[in-house]
């Protein structure tokens, strides 16, 4: 794998999104997702977080503004297999008759011919990806038979198999216990160190300071962006979360940082 090339950034330039019911989901949002770092995309429910996220993934066409991934338009970047996506758990039909191996192999489809016949190399990469997330033993399981954490790891393996330079994770910690969360975080840190750019959409404020280098605070527009330390100020959090008492938020996050330090 060619991991030597430098990591890619994502630039969001003045994005506005209006839905068909004339509701403004996002206006004049601009930010840069720094290359080779883990960035958290944070905001309360209905803040336009998933709108921005799906715009970056190209699932949604913004009514204004542009998004570039490593300088390329999103669709071009996708065609070059630069962007991998780990979906939210409730977006997946877990009863679908596919095995873990099948799912991870889907990460390789972009490299295959018209008929999607996997090559020896594709198989090897799929097995390597499964081993990295410690899911090789589960490769023949139907995806619904997995636990919450295993499900996450299976889809992370698909992103690894795709070898995308940019990995986007949508709410990766919902329905996952603390131990598994830590495993996934360790894995994300490793992947980052290999030169990937990672964007995590989350509402789990507590875990952010344990692994996210940078944070983007969002509420209808980008309110703050920078290193997590810089961004997590009382004023910023109050501004973003409005109704919530900022002191309780800070308590939550500082507790979390503390316990992580003790573990480490």
């Amino acid at each position: 794998m060619t991991m030597t090339a430098s990591p890619l950034n994502i630039t969001v330039d003045n994005i506005s999104v209006t839905y068909s019911n004339a509701k403004l989901a996002l206006y004049n949002a601009s930010c840069t997702v720094m290359p080779g770092a883990i960035t958290a995309l944070v905001g309360p429910n209905g803040c336009g977080k998933s709108t921005l996220f799906t715009s970056i993934m190209g699932f949604l066409q913004p009514s204004q503004g542009k998004i570039r991934v490593g300088g390329l338009p999103v669709q071009k970047a996708q065609k070059q297999q630069l962007m991998a996506y780990v979906p939210q758990s409730d977006e997946v039909d877990w009863n679908f008759p596919v095995s873990v191996f099948d799912v991870v192999m889907m990460g390789r489809y972009g490299y295959m011919n018209f008929f999607r016949t996997p090559s020896q190399k594709d198989r090897r990469i799929v097995m390597e990806s499964l081993e990295r997330v410690a899911m090789a033993d589960f490769r023949n399981h139907q995806i619904g038979e997995l636990s919450g954490g295993q499900k996450k790891r299976a889809f992370l393996a698909r992103a690894l198999a795709q070898a995308g330079k940019v990995i986007l994770l949508d709410e990766p910690f919902t329905g996952v216990d603390v131990k598994t969360e830590k495993k996934i975080i360790d894995l994300l840190l490793q992947i980052r160190d290999e030169g990937h750019t990672i964007l995590v959409s989350t509402h789990d404020l507590a875990s952010i300071s344990t692994f996210c280098d940078r944070t983007i605070l969002l509420n209808k527009t980008v309110l703050a962006t920078g290193t997590t330390e810089e961004v997590f100020t009382e004023d910023n959090l109050t501004l973003t979360f409005g109704g919530l008492p900022a002191s309780s938020l800070r308590q939550m996050t500082s507790n979390r940082t503390h316990s992580a330090e003790v573990e480490a």
Partner: peptide, 22 residues
């Protein structure tokens, strides 16, 4: 027969299909 894998991917995870540029 020829497109079975793409069609299955489309049924299972159309977002991923888009994400890999299909």
């Amino acid at each position: 027969l020829l497109r079975r894998k793409d069609l299955l991917l489309f049924c299972f995870d159309p977002n991923h299909a888009k994400a890999i540029g299909l």
